[in-house]
């Protein structure tokens, strides 16, 4: 039972972590809490659905429920969601930023974006539940009493590959360096020749693309529904804040901790309370480290 809970915690945590990286980026580089992030995730997941509806999810490779077509679908979803994020920034946030809108205004605007996106998804794909493939996957026992689905293992592997790739980009490329500079101080970065607007677009694209991946993974291992992203949003926020905003590994560890907290809690408290657990953990951590586990105290 405990082994199963840990396995489930890591598997759901990985998906939450992908979402949390995007939130962390917008907190650090774009400097506001983006409540529209959950619905970008939904949009990404549904974009992949449109592709698989045409091309199918492919002939299953081995025990996995999808073929190479699904990997293309993930890529398309990432591009659609990333571009949508850039477009939304151009239409909404950029205008607000250029008029020096208050941070709270940005947050409320993101709520508006969230509602528009969700209703757009409803309008295009309808309110019904969708699946990439109707076939049910039967879990395999990888350890005694620990069952996971082959899809989940692939999802976990892909997640870590993406995180490591992103980490290398951030560490080793000029774009990565520029982004880190922006996170420190946009003004200083601007003075040093960083193209602020380009960097903002890149940050949005990465956040959107990672959200789309989280969305397709969630859709693959659970299901697609119009409110899937919004329902995940609070957990994603908890993960980003838990890890410390702006820290890539913080977001990943935060995501895993949130997943573990939810799944392990059912061993001791009734399952109805499990959604509260990440927030209890969050309060506990912030009480001791107000800047999150991996964040650094801000200097003023």
């Amino acid at each position: 039972m405990i082994g199963q809970a840990i396995a489930d915690g890591i598997l759901t945590g990985a998906i939450i972590a992908l979402g949390a990286i995007g939130i962390s980026l917008s907190l650090q580089i774009l400097r506001f809490a983006n409540f529209g992030h959950g619905d970008i995730l939904t949009l990404g997941a549904y974009s992949a659905l449109t592709f698989t509806a045409v091309a199918t999810a492919g002939v299953p490779i081995g025990p996995v429920s999808f073929g190479w077509q699904f990997l293309v679908a993930i890529l398309i979803a990432a591009i659609v969601a990333g571009s949508a994020a850039i477009l939304i920034d151009a239409i909404v946030y950029n205008r607000l930023r250029s008029r020096n809108a208050h941070r709270l205004t940005m947050i409320f605007a993101s709520f508006g974006v969230a509602l528009v996106l969700r209703n757009l998804v409803l309008l295009i794909w309808g309110p019904d539940v969708h699946y990439y493939s109707r076939e049910l996957q039967i879990a395999v026992e990888i350890l005694p009493n620990v069952r996971v689905m082959p899809d989940q293992i692939v999802v976990l592997g892909l997640t870590f590959a993406v995180v490591i790739f992103f980490y290398l980009v951030l560490r080793l490329t000029r774009i990565g360096m520029a982004m880190r500079a922006m996170a420190e101080s946009p003004t200083l970065a601007g003075i040093c020749g960083v193209e602020i607007r380009k960097m903002i677009r890149i940050a949005w694209f990465i956040a959107g693309a990672l959200a789309a991946m989280a969305g397709t993974f969630l859709g693959l291992t659970v299901q697609l529904r119009p409110e899937m992203g919004f329902n995940l949003l609070l957990a994603v926020f908890a993960a980003a804040i838990l890890g410390g905003s702006g820290s890539l590994f913080g977001a990943v560890i935060g995501g895993l901790l949130v997943g573990l907290a939810e799944n392990l809690s059912v061993l001791v408290v009734p399952a109805g309370y499990k959604t509260a657990m990440p927030f209890l953990l969050l309060m506990l951590v912030l009480y001791i480290r107000p800047y999150g586990l991996f964040g650094t105290p801000e200097r003023h």
Partner: peptide, 11 residues
């Protein structure tokens, strides 16, 4: 309205 009920199912 939760994304997954794996924890409940495991119980």
């Amino acid at each position: 309205n939760q994304p997954s009920y794996r924890a409940e199912v495991n119980v």
